[in-house]
Design a protein around this nucleic acid. Structure first.
Length: 272
DNA sequence: ATAGATTCCTGGCTGC
DNA sequence: TGCAGCCAGGAATCTA
């Protein structure tokens, strides 16, 4: 499940190999991925040079020299992998193939085909992208911001963390891990958190995200980076995917329930 | 306005 | 052991 650290890894891996190259050909193997009119999509991208690539939340923004932006969202099982023609056929679930001017290839792979691609002129054209909250590692995301935000939120703290309009890039894995770090139960009402708890949660979000970035993300099932390799952060997960296992901190049994419609992992003894 | 439910999809896991 | 059915969850869309 690509969240911020996984998407960032993908971007860092492909940038050195694709920026500056011209797209020569596109093969669309799963049309449902392409959300823009396909004819227009092909016409505008083929022949254009990739000028730079950035990540915003879980979105990948591929800027073309013709001022258009190719926006890729990996959703659950998507990935972008750079490869050469000799190795291209070894990759499974290729849904879109971008052939570059030096014959190298950028593959969009996605077993469940839930990922999306849009070709746009400005970010406002995609609501989810336009409405994104601050990046968790940016200055804009401060303890004060988090305090102000949580004061007015209903529902669960986990739901608030997953809402991309509040903070950009957290998904199910890092939401659970951040709450474990902070010692806060996922179903707590956001406005019930003390100032101290919010401080700890803020610290947890920053730590979990930056540690996962360092480890090249988490490969729980499907995730691969831009070179087709696994991440390493799964070895450092404290609660996610550890249902009925011993808590690494206190030895109690890790619980799994459903909060905000998502499988949610926590330690009843360490989180209050 | 906002929170929760539903939908998309397929590989892998669970349980009978 | 085999296989039907459930589960995984990001975000758009719906419903209350």
């Amino acid at each position: 499940m690509p969240e911020l650290p996984e998407v960032e890894s993908v971007v860092q891996d492909i940038v050195p190999f694709v920026v500056g190259k011209r797209v020569k050909k596109i093969e669309v193997l799963s049309p449902r991925i392409i959300q823009t009119d396909e004819k227009k999509f092909l016409k505008e991208i083929i022949g254009s040079v990739i000028s730079h690539i950035e990540r915003r939340g879980k979105y990948i923004l591929i800027y073309l020299a013709n001022k258009k932006i190719l926006v890729v969202h990996l959703r659950m099982t998507g990935g972008l992998i750079f490869t050469i023609p000799e190795k291209s056929s070894s990759h499974s679930y290729v849904r879109v193939r971008f052939v570059l001017d030096d014959k190298s290839e950028l593959l969009y792979v996605d077993s469940r085909t839930l990922g999306t691609m849009h070709l746009i002129e400005s970010k406002e054209e995609i609501q989810g992208l336009h409405q994104l909250g601050p990046e968790p590692l940016s200055e804009e995301f401060s303890v004060e911001y988090l305090e102000r935000l949580l004061k007015r939120k209903k529902g669960s703290i986990k739901g608030a963390l997953l809402d991309q309009r509040n903070i950009a890039g957290l998904g199910n894995i890092y939401a659970d891990e951040s709450l474990f770090f902070a010692g806060i139960l996922p179903n707590r009402e956001p406005s019930s958190l003390t100032k101290k708890e919010i401080g700890k949660l803020y610290q947890g979000i920053r730590k979990v995200i930056s540690d996962a970035l360092q480890e090249g993300g988490t490969t729980f099932r499907d995730y691969r980076n831009g070179k087709g390799e696994s991440g390493q952060y799964q070895e450092r997960l404290k609660v996610y995917g550890r249902n009925k296992k011993e808590c690494v901190k206190c030895g109690a049994e890790i619980q799994k329930t459903r909060v905000a419609g998502r499988g949610t992992h926590f330690c009843l003894k360490c989180q209050k």
